[in-house]
Design a protein around this nucleic acid. Structure first.
Length: 865
RNA sequence: GCGGGCGUGGCGGAACUGGUAUACGCGCAGGACUUAAAAUCCUGUGUCUAAGUGACAUGUGGGUUCGAGUCCCACCGCCCGCACCA
């Protein structure tokens, strides 16, 4: 039995597409544009199955939209700066630049073998000075606009990577890459003023109706808006010293009459002041600073405080004063770093109050509860209720009380309404070599001086020593020496580089005009942006996607472009998973080291553990550490790119995890060959069953052939709809159904050969975005000289979508008792009569009186007895 | 703890706005072709079953409805995000 020679065909069509520049695009005002983008990869060395899935999804969308007449921009590039290159440099004594270039070359070749419809002329690499000089320029523009600033602050220090991390990069108190416990350090760092856009970034989430709800929700939570009030507490200094005014933030201003203490963070300026003449406080502050920030540490950490001896005055009751503590659970980073404690209605405050014997005054009681007898036990009352013990607020509900107290704040000089966000500014300084240098110069006299635009790019030195510890740029003997652009005196270059999320925050715009000597041209950006469909992993739900949204607004403010949101549609694909295998010693085995012997049972192949039993574990995300990986290159080598692509699309919806199985890829491969044989070896006698190209439609069609023709046209509609909605697995199923139908055509029937041609051509059209090489090959086999890639999508004929008859289900008391073929849109009377005439139906009715007959036209008839 | 999502055959999954549950595929079983195997093709495949035009089935228990995988309530399980955020 002959088989499809995918190696030959895939190589052939890839070179045809490339030679003809099929996928190169330029702005064309006459066509609607469509920009589809997949998250560009970090050039780690080789592509993995996650890439294959991501780029297959993108390619289907790109090819489909192209066939539908859109001017499609579909580019690819490399997120090329990053730590692995430095680590590799240290391990293998290769400089990051050639290491990265080598990896890009390998991965580019691998991607090209997948037959992806990229406009490769737009390829970019972020480590290219042509790329990063643009972001140095952006940085200077941001500086001018106040979107970036320098400040001394406590930062997250990763002791393994020897660098600072953004808050978003700290997970459970550990570095997101290294997993090391993050330390606090006080350093001078560059920050992006992302919080200036907190409200906008939050509000505009609502406009992103083609984003997954959960991504929007995650960003919403991350921005974390809280509505409440800032309140002032005046106090006198200790021992007659200088007094002052403490400002706190609260979301529960209504509970102010239940306040029994105030507390400030250990690193609050007031704590620092007070500690100057208080050794015990100094000790306490040190203790707070050294406590771990890991999840475990926080869970077990007891709430502790240090009584400063200061009494602050209650803003609405001048007879009351409250003790002021320094407390370990108050965070300087949130709000004002100070709180008032209302133990009755906040669990943390309650624990604190119990420990230090402070008052617990309930000021909100549940509805229908006797206010006099309402007491707080071990749990704070945080639900809605009625205000008590609260002077002028008594009797109000919580929300009413909030409004009432906020109205009084100003008049009483006790505070102001306010909003707080969890989001904090984005620290972008990294003490690494393989990143974009920050283009400023530090001058003893002039301070921070931007590198003049004409001196850009500030290029990385090629001879940095990556083996020594610390920042390689700082260690470099000469690189940092520079004259001050302002006064000309010797000065020092900034030796930090950007967080690599900087590069990925605007690459989508660079693709619009990748060779421009500016970041991109305004014309190209106005034409192509925003990205119509962005596709990538859910792991970037907050970091990359939020930074890009912010960057777009920052670029808009600087006049670079005119849009607010970079990505109009977002598809987050699931992970590629595989079963895990362990040998008798519990060591992981690669899938190709085991032989599957049955359901959840396997044995090891020849080798160290040859023949021994293997424990089959559940399917988990492919990872090198568990060895449950399958190399895309070997799959493409064995089955071809199209088979791999088909499998990626056919078994699971794109946003769900996908189980890679040997049986699944085999199944896809079988279908590839089946399709190929249907075209190349149409059922015997050869040549008689498949009408020649260009044969006109016969005047009459046999009954079955006519039915199949309708199916063909229905399939066009269904598949188009599925592709519009990214239901690729359904689209594949529809096409398989079509091919099943075509196999049932009988050669004897009138017009069957013509319907066969219609059917095969349709199948080839429809499968084109998913398996482009096979489709191109079959298109050619069917006698076409044109390229399928240049052929528009088929249109269904309206006539063929009209059904004369419909199958209607007949139920008795909601139970299916039979089906009925009726002319479409039969009137109710006809339908009812026909239904009641059914043998099964009358048997089920069994002479009982008919109470009601429900008729949904063309769908169902339900007889109620 | 808070927030969100998901539970459908042996497995991955279909099922549009409540209207014939299990499409399509994988696996399995039987058959054809073959000296044999592979490949390919055909048939069958939710469970029970007195084998019926039967009963029961979409995590569990209730509810709404002529009719519920789909809507509502409670519970169980799994997954994800956030978490001393005042």
């Amino acid at each position: 039995m002959s088989r499809y020679n995918f190696k030959q065909a895939e190589a052939k069509w890839q070179s045809v597409w490339e030679d003809r520049g099929c996928f190169a695009v330029s702005e064309d005002a006459d066509k609607p544009k469509y920009y589809v983008l997949e998250m560009f990869p970090y050039p780690s060395g080789r592509i993995h199955m996650g890439h294959v899935r991501n780029y297959t999804l993108g390619d289907v969308v790109a090819r489909y939209k192209r066939a539908r007449g859109f001017n499609v921009l579909h580019p690819m590039g490399w997120d090329a700066f990053g730590l692995p290159a430095e680590n590799a440099a240290r391990e293998n004594k290769v400089h990051p630049a050639p290491w990265t270039e080598q990896n890009i070359a390998t991965m580019r070749k691998q991607l090209k073998a997948m037959g992806l419809s990229y406009d490769w002329s737009r390829e970019i690499a972020t480590c290219d000075p042509d790329y990063y000089r643009q972001e140095q320029k952006m940085f200077l523009d941001f500086l001018e606009q106040g979107l970036v600033y320098r400040k001394e602050s406590w930062v997250n220090w990763d002791p393994v990577e020897n660098t600072v991390l953004a808050n978003e990069q700290v997970i459970d108190g550990k570095g997101w890459r290294s997993g090391a416990n993050v330390e606090n350090r006080f350093l001078s760092q560059w920050f992006m003023n992302i919080t200036a856009f907190s409200e906008e970034l939050l509000q505009d989430l609502e406009t992103l109706d083609r984003w997954p709800g959960r991504v929007r929700l995650m960003q919403e939570k991350w921005i974390g808006r809280s509505d409440g009030a800032y309140m002032f507490f005046d106090f006198d200094g200790r021992n007659g010293g200088q007094g002052g005014r403490l400002e706190v933030f609260t979301t529960r201003p209504d509970t102010i009459f239940g306040a029994s203490f105030c507390a400030i963070a250990a690193n609050h300026p007031l704590s620092q002041d007070l500690s100057e003449d208080d050794a015990n406080l100094r000790a306490f502050i040190t203790e707070c600073g050294s406590a771990g920030t890991s999840e475990a540490a926080i869970e077990t950490a007891e709430k502790v405080g240090y009584d400063t001896g200061i009494q602050v005055r209650h803003p609405f009751d001048d007879k009351r004063t409250l003790p002021l503590y320094v407390a370990n659970f108050v965070l300087m980073e949130y709000g004002t770093g100070a709180i008032f404690g209302c133990p009755a209605h906040d669990q943390r405050d309650l624990e604190f109050a119990r420990k230090y014997g402070l008052d617990v005054i309930p000021v909100v009681a549940p509805q229908e509860t006797d206010a006099e007898s309402f007491v707080i036990g071990d749990e704070a009352f945080t639900d809605d209720g009625v205000l008590i013990n609260s002077a002028f607020l008594d009797g109000l509900g919580v929300e009413e009380a909030k409004s009432a107290i906020i109205e009084r704040l100003d008049a009483a000089d006790a505070g102001r309404p306010g909003v707080n966000y969890r989001l904090r500014d984005w620290g972008i300084s990294r003490q690494r070599y393989w990143g974009c240098p920050i283009p400023v110069i530090h001058c003893v006299d002039c301070g921070i001086v931007p590198v003049p635009e004409g001196d850009l790019p500030v290029v990385l030195p090629e001879d940095a020593d990556l083996d020594a510890s610390g920042n390689p740029l700082d260690n470099h003997p000469t690189w940092k020496d520079a004259g001050c652009p302002a006064c000309g005196k010797p000065a020092r270059r900034e030796t930090d580089t950007f967080d690599t999320f900087f590069e990925s925050s605007w690459y989508f715009a660079r693709f619009c005009s990748p060779h421009a000597d500016t970041a991109f041209t305004r014309e190209a950006a106005d034409y192509w942006l925003p990205v119509d469909q962005y596709i990538g992993g859910i792991e970037h739900a907050v970091l990359h996607l939020l930074y890009s949204r912010f960057f777009t607004r920052a670029l808009k403010q600087c006049g670079y472009l005119g849009i607010k949101e970079p990505f109009e549609g977002l598809l987050t694909q699931g992970m590629v998973c595989h079963e895990t295998y362990r040998d008798e010693n519990g060591k992981w085995l690669y899938p190709d080291e085991v032989e599957i012997t049955g359901y959840k049972s396997a044995r090891a192949l020849e080798g160290a553990q040859g023949g021994s039993a293997v424990t089959v574990g559940r399917s988990e995300k492919m990872s090198k550490s568990r060895k449950n990986v399958v190399d895309p290159e070997s799959i493409i080598e064995t089955y071809g790119a199209d088979t791999a692509r088909l499998f990626m699309l056919s078994d699971s919806p794109p946003d769900r995890d996908l189980d890679w199985t040997e049986a699944g890829i085999e199944g896809a491969w079988r279908y590839v060959n089946r399709l190929w044989r249907m075209v190349n070896q149409a059922p015997a006698p050869p040549g008689t069953f498949l009408a020649a190209i260009g044969v006109t439609r016969p005047d009459a069609l046999g009954e079955h052939s006519q039915a199949v023709l309708k199916i063909i046209h229905r399939t066009i509609v269904a598949v188009s709809d599925d592709l519009d909605k990214f239901h690729f697995n359904r689209a594949v199923a529809r096409i398989r159904e079509l091919t099943n139908e075509l196999e049932d055509l009988s050669p004897e029937e009138e017009g069957a050969d013509w319907v066969m041609r219609q059917g095969l051509e349709t199948a080839v059209y429809l499968i084109g975005p998913m398996m482009p090489h096979l489709a191109e090959e079959l298109w050619h086999s069917l006698g076409h000289q044109t390229l399928l890639a240049d052929t528009p999508w088929p249109e269904a004929e309206a006539d063929q979508l009209v059904e004369k008859n419909v199958t209607v289900a007949v139920q008795v008391n909601g139970k299916l008792r039979g089906t009925l073929d009726l002319p479409k849109d039969s009137d109710d009377q006809t339908a009812e009569t026909a239904a009641l005439a059914l043998e099964n139906v009358s048997a089920a009715i069994a002479g009982k009186p008919i109470r009601k007959v429900i008729i949904v036209p063309n769908r169902i008839i339900n007889v109620v007895v």
